[in-house]
């Protein structure tokens, strides 16, 4: 959908605000969660970019998938994603979310997160250092401003594709809303 539509100026103004206030929900599945506290606290201080942790999916804009996902966790992750309100973004942490990483031949982990949820940005590394995480957040800010971070629109548009992949792994997925 690149270039096929033009964003209105209202959307651009709103993206300016969205970019500067990202509330994240960190879904701590794997080892990536341990890199977040130093990123939040005094040493690296992500708060100066307006990024702050939130406790519930309803309030959050940004879903962090930190590390590998087991098949069981995927279901909870999908529920969490669908509970978030609409301009919402997903960041995949580490190589596990990209292609399975060190769990490439495991029988019960999800290899490609992209098949099941629309990922806006991957941060490579095993695990990414706090510097890499901050760099990823800044990249996401640029993408939001230029309107390229539209994973939630893709999710609605290609819903059958994602649903097919999800149900291939999980069986039936109960939609909450």
């Amino acid at each position: 959908m690149d270039g096929t539509y033009k964003r209105g100026s209202w959307e651009e103004v709103m993206d300016w605000f969205r970019k500067r206030s990202l509330w994240m929900l960190h879904y701590c599945t794997g080892c990536g969660a341990i890199e977040l506290p130093p990123t939040m606290t005094s040493r690296y201080d992500m708060g100066r970019f307006g990024i702050s942790p939130m406790a519930t999916p309803r309030q959050a804009d940004l879903l962090l998938v930190t590390g590998y996902l087991s098949t069981k966790t995927l279901r909870r992750l999908i529920y969490t994603y669908e509970q978030m309100q609409d301009p919402k973004f997903v960041i995949g942490f580490g190589s596990c979310a990209i292609n399975g990483g060190m769990y490439w031949d495991s029988y019960n982990t999800i290899k490609q997160l992209d098949k099941y949820l629309p990922v806006d940005l991957y941060i490579a590394g095993c695990m990414p250092r706090p510097e890499a995480i901050l760099d990823g957040f800044l990249e996401l800010r640029d993408r939001i401003e230029s309107g390229k971070a539209d994973g939630y629109k893709k999710y609605k548009k290609n819903f059958e594709y994602y649903q097919k992949n999800q149900e291939a792994v999980l069986g039936e997925v109960q939609r909450t809303q």
Binding site: S21, W23, S42, D45, G47, R48, F49, G50, S52
Partner: peptide, 14 residues
Amino acid sequence: QKRYGPPFYQPYIN
């Protein structure tokens, strides 16, 4: 907490 902190107009942006 020895941090720099967000800008003071952050609540309006939020």
